[in-house]
């Protein structure tokens, strides 16, 4: 039995009156790849944003790598440094070159010497195949390139967990593949990943488990094959019939 790196117990969260997360129970084991899917507004993004505390949950327990996240968490920055995140809108820093985007956090947060950080960054950029764009600015790159850079930037912190918040939703169909390829490579390298996505092909290829969410609840959680072959709940069946 491998250890679980993320534990969520009875997590509830409200935005004002509106409850976005209802009684979420989730355990993610090390090196597992989880795909979270569901209709928009179902709380998928909020769920993974809670994992690195970009959103604060109001009830329940979230434990990431043996650290509980709550108001008293002093080392929240340290935990975030171990949890990489890739956003739908890339969120690269437009005032810095691609290389500087990747080296900024390693130099200032992890205190790596500049030279080492640059070598590391070039290695990661190599992996996502944009090392030749390293000196350009984000605004000069295509969406797919920007998103791959964002992946490289997160990887430069050498995180234990990677969170993907709809990484391909803002991309042209042609560019989706290059980003998914980068993610598949990462998955094969054994990273623990939680991916919110509508790309069912990607889910089938790499996911160990698929979670289906609706209205803030986890409706169904199953092994990938099981999930696609015989979904249990009617809501999941409906969703799958529409999306596939």
């Amino acid at each position: 039995m491998s250890e679980s790196i993320i534990q969520m117990k009875k997590v509830n969260k409200w935005f004002g009156e509106f409850q976005v997360l209802k009684n979420i129970d989730l355990e993610v084991e090390k090196n597992k790849k989880i795909v979270v899917c569901g209709p928009s507004g179902s709380g998928k993004s909020t769920l993974i944003r809670c994992i690195n505390r970009l959103e604060e949950h109001q009830e329940g327990q979230i434990i990431v790598d043996n650290n509980e996240l709550n108001d008293n968490t002093k080392n929240i920055e340290q935990i975030r440094a171990e949890v990489g995140m890739v956003f739908q809108q890339f969120n690269l820093f437009p005032h810095l070159s691609i290389l500087d985007n990747c080296t900024l956090a390693p130099i200032w947060v992890k205190k790596l010497p500049k030279k080492e950080a640059e070598e590391l960054a070039m290695k990661q950029l190599e992996k996502v195949q944009i090392s030749d764009q390293a000196l350009k600015y984000p605004g000069q790159l295509s969406g797919g390139q920007q998103q791959r850079c964002a992946i490289a930037r997160a990887l430069c912190m050498e995180p234990k967990i990677m969170l993907f918040d709809e990484p391909t939703s803002a991309l042209d169909p042609e560019m989706i593949k290059e980003v998914l390829d980068a993610m598949v490579n990462l998955a094969k390298a054994g990273m623990t990943m939680i991916v919110v996505t509508h790309e069912m092909g990607f889910a089938k290829e790499v996911a160990d488990e698929v979670i289906f969410m609706d209205e803030g609840m986890i409706v169904e959680k199953a092994e990938t094959k099981e999930f696609f072959a015989n979904p249990k709940s009617d809501r999941t069946k409906l969703f799958l019939s529409q999306i596939l």
């Binding site: 944003r49 690195n52 970009l54 920055e77 340290q78 975030r80 440094a81 171990e82 949890v83 990489g84 995140m85 956003f87 809108q89 890339f90 969120n91 690269l92 820093f93 900024l104 956090a105 200032w108 947060v109 992890k110 964002a150 930037r153 997160a154 912190m157 969170l163």
Partner: peptide, 15 residues
């Protein structure tokens, strides 16, 4: 500035 810039910086572990 878009909120994403804050999110990205925070997610990289910056205080």
């Amino acid at each position: 500035l878009p909120r994403g810039q804050y999110d990205a910086a925070k997610s990289l572990g910056m205080g």
